[in-house]
Design a protein around this nucleic acid. Sequence first.
RNA 1: GGGUGACUGGCGCAAUGGCAGCGCAUCGGACUCUUAAUCCGUUGGUUCUGGGUUCGAAUCCCAGGUCACCCA
Length: 513
Amino acid sequence: MSSDDIRGTRLEKASQLRELGFNPYAYRWEVTHHAATLQAAYADLAPGEEVETQVSVAGRVMNRRVFGKLAFFTLQDETGTIQLYLDKGKIEAGMADVDADAFAHLKQLSDAGDIFGAKGTIKRTEKGELSVSVSQYAILTKSLQPLPDKWHGLTDVEKRYRQRYVDLIVNPEVRETFRRRALITAAIRRYLSDRNFIEIETPVLQSEAGGADARPFVTYHNTLEMDLYLRIATELHLKRLVVGGFEKVFELGRVFRNEGISTRHNPEFTTIEVYWAYGDYHDMMTLTEELVTYPATEVLDTLKISYQGQDIDLTPPWRRVTMHDAVLEQTGLDFTAFQTLEDAKAAAKAAGIVGAENCASMGHLLNEAFEQKVEATLIQPTFVTDYPVEISPLAKPHRSKPGLVERFELFMVGRETANGFSELTDPVDQRDRLEAQAARKAAGDLEAHSVDQDFIMALEYGMPPTVGMGMGIDRLVMVLTDSASIRDVIAFPLLKPERHEEKPEEKPGEEDK
RNA sequence: GGGUGACUGGCGCAAUGGCAGCGCAUCGGACUCUUAAUCCGUUGGUUCUGGGUUCGAAUCCCAGGUCACCCA
C-alpha cells in the first residue's frame, strides 16, 4: 500500500471518528501522570497486581498488539513509555455513555502514531509489564503518516536531519541529546547568574560585521535601503556594555558565518561570550574551567567522560601551556630562537609545515605550526596561552612578553572550544590594529572587516581592564553528549533543499549577488 | 573546492546485464496477558533525475541532484 493509500485510509478513519461525535483533533486532555513517574512509583508492584489509583496519561501510540477482546498499546510520552492494557469489558463499561462500541472502534479507528489520552488504574500484567488498565480513552490527534519500521526505526541520516520530528519520535537517544543540551545551557546560565553576571541581548542585524575573522551573511533592509550583516560574533557590542558600566555581562546566542559545512561547522551556531571587568586572562581560564565542569557535573554527574571512544578527564585544573612551548614539544622548533623570518620558514618547512613560505609574519608561521602539528594532539582539556599579536587583533599586549598577547584558547578532543583574552583597552592601539584589518579587506580578504568607528569611540570613553571569553556551545554539547557531528546537537541543521524535477520552482525576482 | 561511497514500496533491506523480491507497517479475517504478539489472506514500485550503450539496464557509461565520510 502506498503512502497516499495509507493517508487516505487514515483520513477516512478521522471522518468516521467525527461521525461518532469524536473530534480527531481534540482540544485538551487532563494529564495527571507521566510514564517515567509511574514506572518509578510502581517499580515494586508484583506481576498480576493492580492498584485502584486513578491516573490519566497521554502520548503517542508506538505499537499496537490487538487481540479479539483485549489489546496492548505502547504509549510514549516525553518521559518514556508505559503500556495501555485495553480490556473490552472495562472500556465498554467505562465509556457506555459516549460510545457503546468503544472497543470495536478502538480496534478499527486507531493506528500506531496516533496521539492518545487514556484514563484508568494501575496494573502490572501477569507477564510483568506495568500498564494503565484503561476505562476511558480518546484519540486526541489522528496521525496520517505511518511510523518507520518499529524494529529497525529510522536510520537514513539524511531523512533523520530533514524530518527531525520523525527522528525524535522513534529514536529516544536523540531526544536525550537535545534534553541534555537544554540542561547544559540552563546550567551555564544559572552558574553565571549565581555569580552576578547578567545576560544582555545584542543585535543580530548589524551595519558592519566584526569581532572575528569570518565571512558574514548579507541581508537587505528595504525602507533603510541598505545592506545589513548577520553578526559573526557578539564581542564588540558586549564590550560597549562594559564601557557603559556593566562589570559582568554575557550573551548565549546564535551567530552566523557564511562558510563551509562539515561535521564541526554549521552556518548558524551558538556561542557564549562572557566579559568580566577588572579581571585578566588568568581569572578567565579558571572561570572557563568552571563553565565546563559545572554543567558536566550537573548533567552527567561526572567529570570523567568518554568521547567517541576516547577517555576525557575534565577534572581541573587543566594543563596550561604556552603556544611556543606546545610547538616546541611537538616539532622541536623553538620560535624564540629564530633571528629572521627566513630562518624560521626554512626550519618550519624542514619540519613539515605545509605552506610555511606563504606566512606573512613570525606569528602567522608559529600559528601555522601550531594548527598543523599541535591542535590534533590536544585531547585532554588544555589551555594554550600567549598568542602572537599578529593573529589577535582585539587582545591586550602581554605584560612581559614582547610580540605576544594575553590570550588563551581551550582545546578538547583536538578541537578549539573556547577563546579568551585580556581585552585591548587602548583605543589608539585598537584603531591601528583595526585599520590594518580594513587594509586587508580592501586588498580582497573576505574575512576581514572595516573599522567599527563607534566601537573605537566607546573605547575612547574608557573601558576598564576587562577579560573576555567566547565558547562554542555546540562543540561543548558534542563533547558532553558524545556526539560525532555538530548536526547531532543542532535540532534543525542547515540542509540544501531537495530539488524535485517535476516541480520547477518559480523564482520571481531572483536576485543573485 | 577535491576524492570516495550511498540512493530500490511509508520504514529496514535483497536482486550474475535477463519476470523487481523479502521483512515490518497497511488492508481483510481469527484470537482476553502481549512485548518486533501469533496464525491465514491482501494491496502497494517513474529502482534519485536526465541522457547513452544494449535484443534487454536497479545493475554498465556520461551528466546532474541530495547525503555521508576523508582531504583542503
